[in-house]
């Protein structure tokens, strides 16, 4: 399917699809694409989070930037669009370590922390995580198809995966 027919989610951004064919986000590195899907109403949503949670000093300027704020906001938007929270299932991809940084690096560990935090938040929200493709050292483009609920992960030098 042509990417042009899909809603596009930027960095620190989220979209909910009720009629469109699907949603795509490109080149997730340590960021995570979280797909939520209601298989009955076929409402699909995706958020592209960058960090696990806001720092103590910084305010939340953009809820979609963080796992702890982005996932709950996506749930709210999907419920408003007709999804039932209790039916939502999740598929996630990303959380890679693009560069093999030294141990004291501030950026080396972000992917792993993002993955752990997304999983924790989904669990707290009572949402079942049914598929995940996280970690390792390469980027992923994630597409969620609204009719089937299928998610596909495209990457360089690795075969395409269906979640």
């Amino acid at each position: 399917m042509n990417d042009d027919l899909l809603l596009k989610v930027g960095i620190a951004d989220m979209k909910v699809a009720k009629r469109e064919q699907g949603i795509v986000t490109f080149a997730l590195g340590s960021c995570i694409g979280v797909c939520l899907y209601d298989p009955v109403t076929k409402v699909a949503g995706m958020v592209h989070i960058m960090l696990a949670e806001p720092g103590r000093s910084s305010g939340v300027d953009n809820v979609a930037k963080y796992a702890t704020t982005g996932v709950p906001e996506l749930i709210n938007q999907m419920v408003r669009a007709g999804a039932s929270k209790s039916r939502l299932v999740a598929k996630i991809a990303g959380g890679a370590k693009m560069f093999n940084m030294s141990a004291n690096s501030s950026i080396g560990d972000i992917g792993r922390r993002n993955t752990e935090t997304v999983k924790r938040v989904l669990n707290e929200q009572g949402i079942r995580l049914i598929a995940s493709d996280c970690g390792l050292d390469y980027a992923r483009t994630l597409t969620l198809y609204r009719e089937s609920g299928e998610a596909r992960v495209r990457s360089y030098a690795h075969p395409e995966k269906t979640l």
Binding site: A27, G29, C31, A96
Partner: peptide
């Protein structure tokens, strides 16, 4: 790394 420009 050799990978996608967006992620880098």
């Amino acid at each position: 790394t050799v990978n996608m420009a967006g992620a880098i």
